[in-house]
């Protein structure tokens, strides 16, 4: 267990689903610890102030404990099968988040930049369509469940061989 989260760490992989925020600097430091890796790519997803043309003031994230971690571990294993990777970190927050807060962190290190870029994009594309997280948006008047988008399915689909 990592500090406070439902953490799982297998060798070079760190996968966490947690309520609390994360520090990009701390996560960068862990990913950058291997001198064999010359490339490090990170992605951070944040709560933005609009969605489908409507104002958003806060976001709640629900997930399926157990399945979520299993899916994320499988996605990381699939990325490792496609590219030579060093360290991989996937952190996703759940609970209620305010505007501008960080939601998700993906970090990948590799000897080569192309592998790091590709694996990072692959992980976020599949996380969005395969990992059991659901967003509930609120503005000052109402709350609504976020609809899945076809373009997210398309983004994941382009990785099929």
């Amino acid at each position: 267990m990592s500090a406070g989260g439902d953490g799982r760490q297998h060798g070079q992989d760190l996968i966490r689903v947690q309520q609390q925020d994360f520090s990009v600097a701390d996560e960068y430091a862990r990913l950058a610890g291997d001198a064999a890796d010359g490339a490090l790519v990170t992605f951070v997803g944040k709560v933005r102030d609009f969605n489908d043309g409507r104002t958003v003031t806060s976001l709640s994230l629900e997930h399926y404990p157990g399945m979520t971690e299993g899916v994320l571990e499988r996605l990381v294993a699939q990325a490792r099968a496609r590219w030579p990777l060093g360290r991989v970190t996937v952190i996703h927050r759940v609970g209620t988040l305010a505007l501008g807060e960080q939601i998700v962190f993906i970090g990948v290190s590799s000897a080569h930049r192309q592998a790091a870029f590709s694996a990072c994009e692959y992980l976020i594309d599949f996380l969005k369509t395969q990992a059991p997280f659901w967003k509930l948006e609120a503005d000052n008047h109402e709350r609504r469940w976020v609809e899945a988008r076809d373009r997210d399915q398309d983004a994941a689909g382009r990785w099929q061989e």
Binding site: G45, Y64, M67, I124, K128, T129, P132, F133, E147
Partner: peptide, 10 residues
Amino acid sequence: VAFFPPMTGG
């Protein structure tokens, strides 16, 4: 067994 709508994380 779990039933749910399409995922919207990330």
